[in-house]
Amino acid sequence: MTTPVSSIRKSPSIVTPLAQPSFLNSVGAMWWRNLKVWMAHFWPSMTGSFAQPLLFLFAFGFGLGAVIDQMGNTSYLVYVLPGIVANAVFFQASFEGSISAFSRFHLQKTYNAILAAPVSLFEILVAEAVWAATKALVSGIAVLIVGLAIGAIPHPMMVIAVIPYIFLCCLSFATFSLFIMAYAKGYEFFSYFFTFWVTPAFLFCGVFFEVDRFPEWVQYIAWSIPMTQMIHVIRPMLIAPETLELSTATLYTVYVVVFGVVSLWLAHRQLSKRLFDK
């Protein structure tokens, strides 16, 4: 009845089981794990990634676009499309980095399981951010494809340059939600995050109209959320690349990057306390 000892070690011919455990391997392994779970829930995943952002595009692009014809020199649909892209990726990255990551950390104890393997918490957090950014990017690309198909992107070739930029921004959005997640004790906690972060981003960051239409104090809030910087880079890239100044774009990008790096550091600090009893 007992399996003979040899049956577990019967293949001495298997050489070097260890490839090379490394930072990239660890990050890739967890990214792959998240992808597998996402694929295991194929239809709900597809609905979240594609259907939801497209609903926004149709509702605001065509719905609101019917009321507002022109935004500056462009049609409202053309104007709002980059905003919808930004909103879609922002929402996805924020959701994945907060509620979904919290489920892995708190409910399924996935982080504990992975920490028992030769993987560090820093690697887990980087993997989570890269994964959230990947998932968000899929939604962004879905909107961009529809935008190309309906001719709502005046500079179609710029899509190629916009995609990596979106990915970079998503990393930053994701690490900030991981930082918030690191403080969560239960799911209720995320109502603060969605009320005071995700919803204001949707309303005030320039998705539907220019940020400068708001009173000054609202503008300060808007510019503190890095989605505003993102929209102010990708909108000109897709509509009128010649109007985008390099210095402005650099400044905005630096803000997005610093914001993301600081968030990652804070997330790591807080989760170290929680996971390692520090």
């Binding site: 298997i14 490839a19 660890s26 890739g28 392994a29 794990r33 993987v119």
Partner: peptide, 16 residues
């Protein structure tokens, strides 16, 4: 998936 965290190769895992 757990094997990947250890950097184990696909070939090794296919038998392991």
């Amino acid at each position: 998936i757990y094997g990947r965290y250890f950097g184990l190769s696909k070939e090794y895992l296919a038998t392991r």
